[in-house]
Design a binder for these strands. Structure first.
Length: 210
DNA sequence: AACACGTACAACCGCAACAGT
DNA sequence: TACTGTTGCGGTTGTACGTGT
């Protein structure tokens, strides 16, 4: 026996959401807040699975979403973040307020990928497409990209979840997630507040890119 | 007008991570 | 520690719409 399906597929709607469904979902979340997606559809009177409700809310109905075209700044930030993080769309979305991982993923696949290819850049590696030849000539050349949070002084904060060797940072802050700001007081947030620099916000000289 | 093709994006699926017991 | 249920993520698909012929 495999695991049970996330929902009773026989009695759930699929495909595009109707205005009525959207309205029900918005009304329910306004009244009860987000969370408990599995039980939400039944409680809200929706014939959808919880995953579908969550996706619809996060990617389309959330009031703080920024609709419309990506700005040039957003465009460049996505490219920089993708170079650092790869296809970690949720992390990239964390640095772009009002944008969702799905939206960024789609935008990458439909616009940016093509743009990079037309410039002769491999969108997966961010290296010139003919870089293979360089590697053939220089097999020992190590172009591996690695990221790590900046070193922080020791502190006695104890609410933090250790992340590898950098046990003074919560994971969100170690990745420089904007959402984490204001919600935690780990070493990085404190330091950033003082210095005006933050990790992955690409203001740091360490990560400065041309 | 009708069709073919390309593009954009909403939505689905499967899996891994996480949380609770 | 092992197990189970839930959530979140990333890859992929489906389809509406625009454009060219």
């Amino acid at each position: 026996m495999g695991r049970s399906p996330c929902c009773e597929k026989a009695h759930t709607n699929k495909g595009a959401w109707t205005k009525e469904e959207d309205h029900r979902l918005i009304s329910y979340i306004r009244a009860h807040g987000e969370g408990c997606w599995r039980s939400l559809p039944k409680a809200a009177g929706l014939l959808r699975c919880g995953k579908s409700c969550r996706l619809r809310w996060i990617n389309y109905l959330r009031p703080d979403l920024k609709r419309g075209n990506f700005s040039l700044e957003e465009d460049q930030l996505i490219i920089k973040l993708h170079r650092l993080l790869g296809n970690k769309w949720s992390l990239i979305a964390g640095r772009l307020p009002g944008r969702t991982d799905n939206e960024i993923k789609n935008y990458w696949n439909t616009h940016i990928r093509r743009k990079l290819l037309s410039r002769g850049i491999d969108p997966a590696t961010h290296r010139p497409l003919n870089d293979d030849k360089v590697l053939e000539r220089c097999p020992d050349l190590n172009l591996e990209l690695t990221i790590s949070p900046p070193r922080q002084p020791q502190s006695d904060q104890h609410h933090l979840k250790p992340v590898g060797r950098n046990s003074n940072l919560c994971f969100a802050c170690s990745l420089g997630l904007q959402n984490s700001k204001g919600h935690c007081s780990c070493a990085l947030n404190t330091a950033n507040a003082a210095s005006g620099h933050d990790f992955l916000a690409l203001k740091t000289s360490v990560l400065e890119m041309k």
